[in-house]
Design a protein around this nucleic acid. Structure first.
Lengths: 341, 341
DNA sequence: ATGAAAGCGCTAACAT
DNA sequence: ATGTTAGCGCTTTCAT
């Protein structure tokens, strides 16, 4: 195998036309087993590898799907990516990953790969861009799928869990342990997830007839430092609370750090519950209670749907996929507090 | 902006030749500021986006670099990827990531993107494939860079830390705490890293005149379960040891789990030291002592070197980059044991 | 500084 | 079932 062997080289040596070689490679059904064998033999002898750019140009597709995530080192996203990757691979698609590092501009720029026809479709995981921008791309016939947010456009498949519902579950769990002053450390206020998680929090309080104190809400931007600082602000307010619902595990990490600095004991003095079932959460001391989402499955199901829709094998009917989440009760909230007063 | 605008559409509307539009986009120097402005205006009006496949085909390059890692959800690899991604991005290169999930075949298959000219070069992080195979690709003029292993070929840049050296440091640290029976849980025996880490272990023992017991060596395949099982095998042998050097943090996770099941207290009854400074390690209880490598920097430096070499801006002289690692002493080994005669 | 023309390597439409 | 022909959209000589 050497130098740039082209399809015509193979064709000549095999005594057939280039088109036949192409057929052998792409659509063997339309070719005699005998010719196929002959051609394959030459292909192997010559070590022929079709040029991807020429193929892409001619066929007007790249068999490549892009994936945009806010942070590749967060296990939530890497699990989703694994799900996408494996299914895509089984369907002969390549996957290009973009780690935006929480930068919305980078996210937007990545969508350019769609417009330059470098990729055939894109999956956005927990996107930062507004619905408006995303809808605009979909309107221009680009294929987009979303993990973790619902966007209403008939060409956009989405997969999500019910944030309101699991947040209510978390609060109910805490109430069941005797907590009545429950703080919430939420993510970036513009994120849809944040408002849904807050909504669930409020709904649950109402359901349990617990008065709502706005001072018990803080924002931690979905990262460790943010969680740490939000918790410190909570402490600084000198108001009483016995539990914290952290809208993701990363922020809960910050809560743990602050607690350790202030000598606050989890779960005896403070119950903590996170969201995501981050790889780290079960190794914490105490292990962190959290909400698990089927991350791998979410990636897998969505990419399958997207590919189907791109190839129009699929009606756009059930394009909103919902999956169940599960509250994992671990050491950080496994403690029933006494009634006080 | 709509439908497929081509370079000729822009050219016509701007009253110039397609070649001029191409020059504006790629090599503005050779075009009058006035023409350039005129063309740019039309480009924006029409929302023209050059077709990547056509560009790749004609220019014989894709401005894309592939990265292969064994496991994207391991923070060691995701940090390396971040380093690669950011530098590549700043040099106008795209990055395609492949998560092999420890599958050597998938690794090999990914290299096919090189032969089909889908990517211009590839970076292999802790590759599983043999030197022989990798060298063969390099011999065929493909651009390959390696993170975490040294391969001797003048066209292959490599970046690494000194595994022997830091392993000796780890053992010396443990010896300094009074340990003399030190077990090692190593990675897959065919990995170069494993043999280097073992070499360092043996060298350090010799240096400290500590007798070597082959029963104190076990293999844990670089993953949590492997570490768990290796440690159980160690226990089953009923030989005495007071410290374990785990060749990575993942396996140390397994050691922690086994210890907790067997009521073994770290660091009082057993000192543990890992390698990688995995994100999880500092959150363990007790925090895990480990060897930190400058992962982000390693990715960044290597991709820079690779790009330089691809564009022949760089002599192949100093193609072996060495970076320093650092032993982080944390709770899991921060305990001086009594001399017992 | 700009234009005209050729061609990168493949696949698809049409012809046989 | 296979061959012939044309062309995907761009960049790059070579002219001017």
């Amino acid at each position: 195998m050497d130098m740039k062997i082209k399809i015509v080289d193979v064709a000549t040596k095999a005594g057939v036309a280039p088109a036949t070689v192409s057929r052998v490679l792409n659509d063997s059904s339309k070719v005699t087993p005998k010719t196929k064998a002959k051609v394959m033999k030459i292909i192997n002898e010559l070590g022929y590898q079709p040029n991807a750019a020429a193929k892409n140009l001619r066929s007007q597709k790249t068999m490549t799907i892009g994936v945009v995530v806010p942070d590749i080192s967060n296990s939530y996203f890497s699990e989703v990516i694994k799900g996408i990757g494996n299914i895509a691979y089984s369907k002969k698609y390549k996957v290009v990953i973009c780690d935006t590092e929480n930068n919305a501009e980078k996210e937007l720029e990545f969508l350019n790969l769609l417009t330059t026809r470098t990729i055939d479709g894109v999956i956005m995981v927990a996107p930062m861009l507004s619905n408006e921008i995303i809808l605009n791309f979909a309107d221009h016939e680009y294929s987009i799928g979303i993990v973790g947010r619902q966007i209403d456009h008939e060409r956009i498949p989405c997969i999500l869990t019910d944030n309101v519902k699991f947040s209510m579950q978390v609060i109910s769990h805490l109430v069941g342990l005797g907590h009545r002053e429950i703080a919430i450390i939420n993510g970036s206020s513009h994120a849809v997830d944040s408002s849904n998680r807050l909504e669930g929090y409020l709904k649950a309080l109402k359901e349990h007839q617990i008065p709502f104190h706005p001072e018990l809400i803080e924002n931690g931007d979905f990262n460790e430092t943010g969680g740490y600082e939000a918790f410190k602000r909570l402490l600084a307010k000198k108001i009483r609370f016995s539990a914290v619902y952290s809208a993701n595990d990363e922020m809960a990490l910050g809560v743990y750090r602050a607690c350790s600095e202030h000598g606050i004991q989890i779960p005896m003095q403070l119950a903590v519950v996170g969201v995501d079932n981050n790889r780290i959460s079960k190794y914490l001391n105490p292990p962190l209670s959290t909400v698990n989402q089927p991350k791998y499955t979410m990636g897998a199901l969505l990419v399958e749907k997207l590919i189907d829709m791109m190839n129009e094998n699929e009606d756009a009917e059930n394009r909103i996929l919902k999956v169940e989440s599960e509250l994992l009760i671990r050491g950080s909230s496994d403690y029933k507090i006494k009634g006080r007063e």
